[in-house]
């Protein structure tokens, strides 16, 4: 990527590295290891990885809160190390735990952060009222946050992250620990945020269904290293070869029909009247269905099963773990 292209990116990192502890001592931790990343403006970008993969450290580095050990980065055109305060005026962060002052009311939590982000009093009050209404918290605005449920706290923390209308929003596990209803409400808010306001969002999650639904592109981190990058669909197609089909039909007659040579994992469940198999390409599906019909089968349903991001994630995780073991050996 040319330096001009890099300038147009919301986030651009080159060989970003962060080590905790003394490198000469055994107990040092390489939290982020040579990360090269480009996030486009207006994109919802997913950082995936299990606990300790380096997601939170990456957010801290990108927001200028933590200094890198090596490498360089530009975020919204700023150098986070040298221009941290100026960058942070343009970013909003939902930290992994809501990080709210429980002794203060919802309203106070918002107005104090409004002032810290340099928003004037009148605008802060107006935006706080609007956000509390949007996030369904206006009736509890004057109550201490200590009395709020986990879902309400998460919504309030999200409102706080949006109060100063940031261009880039970091969301660190926004639905972690929430019940399904609260999690769905937060996901809808994120979707609205990106669709209506075209803000850049970096979403850290290990909820892969959530990432598949919300993210334009995702990257998978393992031990601080980037192991995959792309759209959820492309990652799935590239990493999981072929397409798995479930065909519901009246019977399966192997004498009248033999599956194509390229078909794999062919199984017939007589009880459920379901034939399952894997084909190398989507384009093989019509020919297969036609040959089944020619052989006298009655087809009731054909369901392709696209590999999910979860399948991809586990495939990557297993591959990386095995490769890691080989390197160690």
């Amino acid at each position: 990527m040319s330096s001009e292209d890099a300038k147009t990116m919301a986030v651009h990192t080159e060989n970003l590295k962060r080590i905790f502890g003394n490198v000469n001592e055994r107990d040092h931790v390489v939290a982020v290891n040579g990360l090269n990343l480009d996030v486009r403006p207006g994109e919802v970008f997913g950082l995936l990885g299990h606990n300790g993969a380096g997601k939170t450290t990456t957010i801290r580095l990108l927001n200028g809160v933590l200094a890198p050990t090596a490498g360089s980065m530009r975020v919204l055109g700023y150098d986070p190390v040298e221009e941290g305060p100026y960058l942070r005026r343009q970013t909003g962060v939902l930290t992994e735990s809501p990080s709210l002052d429980e002794k203060l009311s919802a309203q106070e939590n918002l107005t104090i952060y409004g002032r810290l982000y340099g928003v004037d009093e009148t605008t802060t009050r107006a935006r706080a009222a609007e956000l509390l209404e949007t996030f369904d918290l206006s009736t509890r605005a004057a109550e201490p946050v200590g009395t709020f449920s986990k879902g309400m706290r998460q919504r309030l923390a999200l409102a706080r992250a949006l109060l100063h209308q940031p261009r880039l929003i970091f969301l660190d596990e926004p639905t972690a620990g929430l019940d399904p209803v609260a999690a769905e409400s937060v996901r809808r808010l994120i979707l609205r945020l990106t669709e209506e306001n075209r803000r850049t969002v970096i979403l850290c999650t290990h909820n892969l269904v959530e990432a598949q639904r919300l993210c334009h592109r995702v990257c998978v981190l393992e031990h601080g290293q980037l192991v995959a990058l792309g759209t959820p669909t492309n990652l799935s197609r590239n990493l999981q070869q072929g397409i798995r089909l479930t065909i519901e039909m009246d019977r399966y007659d192997p004498d009248a029909f033999s599956p194509p040579e390229a078909a794999r994992e062919v199984t017939w469940n007589a009880g459920a009247q379901v034939l399952q198999l894997r084909l190398p390409h989507r384009e093989d599906v019509p020919a297969l269905v036609a040959s089944l019909v020619d052989a006298g089968h009655r087809i009731y349903r054909v369901s392709p099963e696209e590999p999910t991001l979860e399948d991809v994630y586990f495939a990557l995780h297993n591959a990386h773990e095995s490769a890691g073991k080989k390197v160690v050996v």
Binding site: N63, P85, R88, R89, V93, D101, Y117, A157, R160
Partner: peptide, 14 residues
């Protein structure tokens, strides 16, 4: 102890 420090450190304050 209250877990409120991180959000504060992410603000534009120097």
């Amino acid at each position: 102890e209250r877990g409120t420090l991180e959000a504060l450190l992410h603000t534009p304050t120097t």
